[in-house]
Write a protein that binds this DNA or RNA. Sequence first.
DNA 1: AATAGCTACAACCGCATGCAT
DNA 2: AATGCATGCGGTTGTAGCTAT
Length: 326
Amino acid sequence: MTNKSTSSENHGLKKGPWTPEEDQKLVDYIQKYGYGKWRTLPKNAGLKRCGKSCRLRWTNYLRPDIKRGRFSLEEEEVIIQLHSALGNKWSTIAANLPGRTDNEIKNYWNTHIKKKLMKMGIDPVTHTPRLDILQLASILNSSLHNSPQFNNLDHFSLGRVENPNHLYILNLLTTLLSCQNKNLNDSNYNVHQNQSSGNDNNYSNSLQQLQNPQFKITMESPLMKTKLMNQIAPIATSFSNIQQPKSSTINNILENQILSNIEEMPNFDLSSLFSTSPSPSSPSNLKSQSSTTFVNGTIEGERYTYDNNNFMMYNISNGLNDSELL
DNA sequence: AATAGCTACAACCGCATGCAT
DNA sequence: AATGCATGCGGTTGTAGCTAT
């Protein structure tokens, strides 16, 4: 093709997986003469490989100090933290993980961590909450706000949602809603609990906050939390329970409102919601918010993670799996 | 049991960088 | 300064093995 030197170099040279015999030749040679001078090494070692292939095989696989086996949780956390600060600087990240190669870390990032972060609602590029989910939050907020059923929280419930795409949206949004309802850590939670003087006032205050377009909800009391969560839980359940008798009127209203809200949003690409590909890179000012510290724990049996800004991010499960992210 | 689809990861490719001449 | 070589880096691809149907 365009690289003439490469094509002539590769003439008669083997490509593809290494055989145990080739590995042995390479190891024997390096143990005897050391590594380096990769261009001449394969010829001297009796290998029909290019130098590049030999170097890669040695550094990524045959090197004696390579660490084998699955990545530990600690290693995973180091990778996430370093990636949030460094980006795709795999070799620099690898330098902080003894025995792990840049290639291995890169593969692990692409096959495991990236998906994990996506499911947690974190943009794996910027390490900030996914923009598409934040947009969805405002859609749900607007939809709920315009729903007559929402005016009476005690009787607010949904039946079956027919459209799988809408189901996915609603599922995401419900999770986010519950996430936002719990966006407090334990210490703040206790402070608020002690300071609260009247639950009913807090209840109405929180309802107002629930309806505000910024979608910022702070829970002031355990009672308030319980009340609201009791309303949200059946919604989540109804989304994943296809046997539940449908309440088409309510669903149609809500689905139509969601769709019309989506259509009114400028520059909103609905298709991006049904893909597992990363959301578009956010502006560089978001990238400057580096060094995320993750703290893991459990609330009500759910695994959670929150960063050093106390933004709590729930694992988006609710029966969702990748195949539903069409 | 067959096979289609998916996942994980080794290996490759092209480009960038650093250094010697 | 220009050139060529050696090596490093990050994105991408190919495929073995696993899982679901």
